[in-house]
Design a protein around this nucleic acid. Structure first.
Lengths: 146, 146
DNA sequence: GCTATATAAATTGCATACAATTTAATCAAA
DNA sequence: TTTGATTAAATTGTATGCAATTTATATAGC
């Protein structure tokens, strides 16, 4: 590939991911709005529904986000009544996040989100599964390097 | 797939894209820093190296960004001396972006970026090509819906 | 020509991302 | 055990994204 080809926007894998990620977020937006959540708030809740009672550090490791992003996000979710934030008695450096009853209950409603997401599109479930696997493989190769 | 499986973070295609996109941006960061560019500034320059002398509207269509994001970004690149912004004489509503000599010249240096990106990783060029195609296919299916 | 409509940027406000620094708490080594 | 290093969150500052509104310009009907 020559220089011009190499630098074309449409030949950049990163741009494909970057733009696809944002388009998918747009697909989520109206659906998540019914739950009163933004996309980042949603994946944070997904992580907590999977494992409750975790520190900001652990949550950050799952979501690949640091305290700079998580602290204000968690404060917002706390203000919304979906979770509580409290220091770990055993080690006051850790802040433990716990779902409230309301936060745990929201999972019920949320279970419809993945089903509704690709309604109205021609996206094939098999395609989603295969693609996700490949992206995750790439991710791990990239993470190894950084 | 049951409810629990359906809502697991690792089963979300969106999260795979979202996290992979951000990890790739982290790969770019040190390389682009040598050019004095952020990732968004870089893809904007890619678009301009491909086609100079475009309106904010046209640029936004390529990058899938609106004036809310582009206006401050372009002002920054203008301040850096890489481009100029001027109203179209024929239609003052349009603001035309043009590369400066310096901006055009930066393409030379930038041509090394895609080559250096996956150095130090085990990512296969064939893999990149195939994956990009699939992501772009998905993108178009999603765009059709929105 | 005059006005209603449409269009393009810019602006405003809110929600991320993330590097770098600060603060508070814990651990470790002499 | 005392102090230097380490760790976890929070904070600060900068750069996006994007919805909604505003401003300026152009166009379409009449």
């Amino acid at each position: 590939m020559n220089n011009d080809e190499l630098l074309k926007l449409e030949n950049q894998l990163c741009f494909a991911f970057y733009s696809c990620s944002r388009e998918m977020t747009k697909l989520y937006r109206p659906i998540l709005a019914e739950l009163g959540l933004t996309y980042t708030q949603y994946i944070t809740m997904l992580a907590l529904w999977e494992q409750d009672h975790v520190s900001v550090k652990e949550l950050g490791a799952k979501l690949l986000l640091d305290s700079g992003t998580l602290t204000p996000l968690l404060k917002k979710l706390e203000a919304m009544g979906l979770l509580t934030r409290a220091r770990d008695k055993a080690d006051e450096r850790h802040l433990i996040v716990r779902l409230t009853e309301e936060g745990a209950a929201l999972k019920e409603k949320a279970s419809l989100v993945p089903i509704r997401l690709f309604e109205g599109t021609t996206v094939d479930p098999e395609e989603i599964f295969a693609l996700r696997k490949q992206v995750q493989t790439l991710m791990s190769k990239i993470s190894d390097a950084t």
